[in-house]
Write a protein that binds this DNA or RNA. Structure first.
Lengths: 147, 147
DNA sequence: TATTGTTATACTCTATAACTATA
DNA sequence: TATAGTTATAGAGTATAACAATA
């Protein structure tokens, strides 16, 4: 008996645990958060535009596993709040590039703090080894989502 | 420079990564799943009733970080599908206990497999050390959600 | 013909509010 | 008066369908 998952059944158990636990964490996090904050996909869009620069609706939809129509709706909200702005694509007249506004840069910095306050406090209570596991797992979870 | 988070800022970064990555994974998982499956909270309810036995609406709501009204609605759906059944509480006439039906036991076994098929495949591609990190992290994430 | 984006509509999940019944 | 549950309504987030513009 070693620590590695050995069978499809063990992987299935692990996957069930992972998905139910993460679903619960996100529900909890929403319950603990003041509701006029930005949603997860909205924060993800700000992060992506901040890190990678301007991007089109279709690019962002692919990156965040959403349909382009849904991404369009979400971008329209962020635009209405003044956090992103439209730019014409230099060569392709169909595309619209979205970029962070100055206000969007500021929102990215500030508003994610409110959203995460509860989780920061909860994570601060873990010991350093446990925190390291979660940090390593975050990178793996991102890879799974992107794969 | 060691591996442990040392400041509030490092914890904030870690928390942002964790929440955005998990939110993306759950979106992706939904996109990859045939849509007539059970939702996450529905699967969580079946798991909890299967592991811990019958429970009331209020108990389940607390356990899954939902409002009792929302839990009531969700339980009503599961009842309509024949997966859970009502029982009177032995001593408290206000409470209703919910329990898995035989069909619910079966659903718990079968339908979560369909829901998780994609993630099992993705996780199977990780190496054993990475799988172990995710398994350890799942338990921590559950603790964070319950805390 | 394929791709990008928009608009309209609908569905899922969860919340809030108002109510009834029991403790 | 406090707690458990129900019903009605609303909101966020995302999907599908139908369409227009550009490649």
């Amino acid at each position: 008996m070693n620590q590695a998952p050995k069978s499809a059944e063990m992987l299935e158990t692990a996957v069930t645990e992972l998905s139910l636990a993460t679903a619960h964490l996100l529900r909890r996090l929403r319950a603990e958060t003041d509701s006029d904050e930005l949603g997860w996909s909205q924060l993800a869009i700000l992060a992506r535009l901040g890190n990678d620069g301007p991007a089109s609706t279709a690019d962002l939809a692919r990156a965040e596993s959403m349909k382009p129509q849904s991404m369009g709706t979400t971008l329209a909200m962020l635009e209405r709040e003044g956090l992103v702005e439209r730019r014409p694509h230099p060569t392709d007249g169909r595309q619209v590039l979205f970029a962070l506004t100055a206000e969007g840069v500021e929102a990215r910095r500030k508003r994610k703090i409110a959203k995460h306050e509860w989780l920061v406090a909860a994570m601060a209570k873990l010991d350093p080894a446990e925190q390291r596991i979660l940090i390593a797992a975050s990178a793996l979870i991102r890879r799974l989502g992107d794969s």
